[in-house]
């Protein structure tokens, strides 16, 4: 009996020994890399934002100037998202929003879009999608410049009729044989502009006011 207990304890101690060494190595690596990782992740996010809001057009720390936005049907979101505001000398330049087109050919299409203070789109990018390769994936900037056709567009002159693909009588181009994907995106961008129109002041408010609007610091 005693021998069994002893050998069991020995085996356990052995495993604990390896676990402690392993944890120590991991902790050391984490300590060495976590600051670099945080910086890299921020830099990547900034790189994405800079594609649609030129870095020269604002002077604030755009990643810090954030507000939390509750899930909203117009944005197509089902969870809280984060919006960032670009300012120049304190004046709002543009807001960066996350939006989701729920009705893509193969499910949700996640978008990021920047809307200037005057309601014009600064740019739209597709963050993730599952559309058919070679057919619906021309929405990616890497494959096709189609997504830039939103640049400068707004609801200031165009209404719901123009905010459709050409096949449905609207103003937006699409590729032959693949209309569902662009239709979903045009719809989602149009709705996001409606959201912007309804929440403009809250979105551009200084951070203190945003605390009230968004409900979270």
């Amino acid at each position: 009996m005693r021998r069994i207990v002893r050998s069991t304890l020995q085996t356990a101690a052995n495993l604990v020994f390896f676990a402690i060494i392993g944890t120590a190595i991991l902790a050391a690596t984490y300590g060495m890399t976590h600051e670099v990782i945080e910086r890299t992740v921020e830099a990547e996010k900034l790189k994405l934002i800079s594609q649609i809001v030129p870095p020269a057009s604002y002077d604030n720390d755009i990643l810090k100037d954030e507000r939390h936005i509750e899930a909203d049907a117009l944005l197509g979101t089902t969870t809280q998202t984060v919006a960032h505001v670009a300012r120049r000398k304190g004046e709002p330049v543009a807001v960066v929003l996350e939006s989701i087109a729920p009705d893509g050919y193969a499910g949700k299409i996640a978008l990021i879009l920047a809307i200037r203070a005057n309601g014009e789109l600064a740019g739209v990018r597709v963050v993730s999608h599952k559309e058919t390769p070679g057919l619906g994936d021309y929405i990616e900037i890497a494959k096709n410049p189609w997504i830039t056709s939103f640049d400068g567009k707004s609801r200031n002159i165009w209404g719901d009729k123009e905010w459709q693909v050409k096949k449905d009588g609207g103003q937006f181009e699409h590729m032959a044989g693949a209309t569902i994907t662009p239709r979903a995106i045009v719809k989602a961008v149009n709705r996001s502009l409606l959201y912007f129109a309804a929440h403009r002041d809250e979105l551009f408010a200084e951070n203190i006011a945003a605390t009230h609007a968004g409900g979270k610091p």
């Binding site: 392993g22 190595i25 991991l26 690596t29 060495m32 670099v36 990782i37 890299t40 992740v41």
Partner: peptide, 20 residues
């Protein structure tokens, strides 16, 4: 498995930091 998992996680941290 423990040793391998530790090594893989180390590689993962390094790639996350330097080859994002």
């Amino acid at each position: 498995v423990l040793i391998i998992a530790v090594l893989v996680t180390v590689v993962q941290y390094l790639m996350n930091a330097y080859m994002y």
